[in-house]
């Protein structure tokens, strides 16, 4: 009995220490930690205080093309096109629906946010992105995106309470999926590895061959019910539904012209079929899906050595207009 009393007293002391630590932490290094490890949460916390609409995006929102005269991001363009609505971007490079869902869940009940616009990046459904080496820092950030006292989230981060698979393990997984995930074509186009081995554009030293490979690796995949990204988007739908938020998915433009030129119509047909699956899946769930998949021509893509969703000012305006037209309707 004596021992139980002693232990109980110490447990209470421990709780008090953690509570005081939380207060000290919030007022000292918490924001520095957010800036260093989770800058998107910092953006979110600021945006949610003032915005009517939040725009969740990865790097496609950035405006870095040197020849652009209009340096506005997609979000800034949308905000200018919607004078009655305050729209703020919650964005940073490499993030995806797995991050967006955590942030959307943190939107407070009493906030003014009515619209949630989420970029649906087709490439993010592929295994190359799902198991990217960027995933570890993203998973590390995610620990902070939980509705717990900040000190507990920080402690869990210190305990590495996130997916810490090594780059080697992730690479092995990617290679396994490229070899074993079946594509709806006859051999050798029935999996990514064999498809990539097909001779086209000469040997591996040819930049076009390398780019064609990147297109196959990034865009050729089946989207099954087990796809983690699909589950993330499903969760976003249900969170917005619970919170009574108007949800808009924007299927981002991909460079279909380049894909067809480099690899062939098999790839673009697979991409379009996958995209249609996504449109059909979410249109039935009281979500507005804006399909910009083929809306931007090759000339509006800024990256020439790797497939990406980075657009010139014209491309960004195309996406911005599509979203604002929808909101205005």
């Amino acid at each position: 009995m004596e021992m139980i009393k002693k232990i109980a007293l110490r447990i209470l002391l421990l709780i008090a220490i953690v509570a005081v630590s939380n207060v000290i932490y919030r007022h000292t290094t918490y924001h520095a930690d957010l800036r260093a490890e989770s800058n998107v949460l910092l953006k979110f916390e600021r945006a949610v205080e003032t915005a009517d609409a939040l725009y969740f995006s990865a790097s496609p929102n950035a405006a870095v093309f040197k020849d652009d005269t209009d340096k506005r991001t997609i979000a800034q363009m949308m905000d200018d096109l919607l004078p009655d609505l305050k729209l703020e971007a919650v964005d940073t490079g490499g993030i995806h629906a797995g991050v967006f869902k955590k942030l959307i869940a943190l939107i407070p009940e009493d906030s003014d946010v009515r619209y949630v616009v989420v970029n649906m990046n087709y490439r993010s459904f592929g295994i190359g992105w799902i198991e990217s080496v960027l995933e570890n820092p993203i998973q590390k950030q995610l620990v902070f995106y939980n509705n717990r006292p900040p000190i507990i989230n920080r402690f869990l981060q210190g305990l590495n309470f996130y997916d810490t698979r090594s780059a080697k393990e992730r690479e092995e997984l990617i290679q396994w999926h490229w070899k074993n995930d079946s594509l709806p074509f006859a051999a050798p186009r029935n999996n990514v590895t064999d498809w990539c081995a097909l001779e086209k554009w000469g040997d591996w030293t040819n930049p076009k061959r390398q780019l064609a490979d990147s297109y196959i690796k990034n865009f050729a995949f089946p989207i099954t019910e087990e796809n983690p990204r699909l589950k993330d988007f499903d969760e976003i739908v249900s969170i917005c539904h619970q919170k009574g938020l108007k949800l808009i998915f924007v299927i981002l433009p991909e460079n279909l012209q380049e894909a067809e030129k480099l690899v062939g119509p098999e790839l673009t047909s697979l991409m379009i079929s996958n995209k249609n699956k996504l449109v059909n899946r979410y249109k039935t769930n009281e979500v507005t899906v804006i399909d910009c998949f083929g809306a931007v021509p090759d000339s509006c893509f800024t990256e020439r050595i790797f497939p990406s969703e980075h657009y010139t000012q014209t491309g960004r305006m195309t996406v911005a207009r599509a979203v604002t037209d929808c909101i205005n309707r």
């Binding site: 953690v18 630590s21 930690d33 590390k140 305990l159």
Partner: peptide, 12 residues
């Protein structure tokens, strides 16, 4: 306790 909870290295 404060150091362990708030100042530990965040990487694995």
């Amino acid at each position: 306790i404060y150091c362990v909870m708030a100042l530990s290295g965040p990487d694995f």
